[in-house]
């Protein structure tokens, strides 16, 4: 398992408030990692930093074999080198159909002229069908995404993430708004993705995390409080105090 992403000594403050405090983190490929922590621990901000949405005040974020510095890259460049993200609040293109949403995410050249001259291919169509099947939206392919339920939008986001075929998948609270069966399906899906790629999952739901059956990182006040197996971290007194005990 080689290191895919390495973050070291990263800090971010918003108006003097340190949301991320000297955070270090590394993930290999393939690897599945769960991140837990109380509200406001900085989990989403952590993903914002990797994807280029938030620029940290200090620290390094290195990615891939060539150790690219993600901090020097724009959001779209970061996405193109293989970092994909599912947002905490599902943000799909509501005015466009499920199919259009998936097609936009599909791994293909991203330049304006590539896209202008893009011709639909049978493979692309098949890939969309397969993804729709996977996320249970086959019947909704022609519906505008804005009509979907919250849970379906979550699925669409997951589908768009998979469509990009990223090497590093950042998945922020995938299970919110899902039924127990759907949650099981989601864990299966993430574990399957983690057979080849690096997957980071943020979740509050302990059962969900238990089923992921992977190494867990506990974030608190912007830095790592504990790291290890779920049983290991849940026995940690500090973790119980700040997160589980409430």
């Amino acid at each position: 398992m080689s290191t895919l992403l390495e973050m070291s000594g990263v800090s971010v403050s918003f108006d003097g408030f340190k949301a991320i405090n000297n955070l270090s983190f590394r993930i290999g490929e393939p690897e599945l990692r769960a991140i837990i922590g109380p509200n406001g621990a900085g989990k989403t901000t952590f993903m914002d930093i990797i994807t280029g949405k938030t620029k940290p005040d200090e620290g390094r974020v290195l990615y891939g074999e060539k150790s690219l510095s993600l901090l020097k890259m724009s959001e779209s460049q970061i996405a193109r080198v293989g970092v994909g993200r599912k947002f905490q609040k599902p943000t799909v293109f509501e005015a466009q159909t499920v199919r259009e949403n998936l097609a936009m995410a599909l791994k293909n050249p991203r330049g304006p002229f590539d896209v202008l001259l893009y011709k639909k291919t049978a493979e692309g169509a098949a890939r969309i069908e397969a993804l729709a099947e996977e996320i249970g939206l086959t019947a909704e392919l022609t519906r505008p995404a804005g009509e979907l339920s919250h849970g379906q939008k979550q699925w669409l986001e997951i589908g768009m993430l998979l469509a990009q075929e990223p090497r590093l998948l950042l998945v922020d609270e995938p299970a919110a708004g899902m039924t127990p069966t759907e949650r099981e399906h989601t864990t299966d899906l993430l574990r399957r993705a983690a057979e080849k790629h690096a997957v980071v999952v943020v979740e509050h739901d302990m059962e969900f995390v238990r089923r992921l059956d992977c190494k867990v990182t506990v974030l608190h006040e912007g830095s790592v409080l504990a790291e290890g197996s779920l049983d290991h971290v849940t026995q940690n007194q500090q973790v119980i105090d700040v997160y589980l005990g409430r």
Partner: peptide, 20 residues
């Protein structure tokens, strides 16, 4: 047209599985 968030707001803190 259905713009806006109709589901639960953000993923609220949950420590248990949701129930169908």
């Amino acid at each position: 047209f259905r713009v806006g968030d109709y589901g639960p707001d953000k993923g609220a803190l949950r420590q248990e599985e949701g129930h169908e």
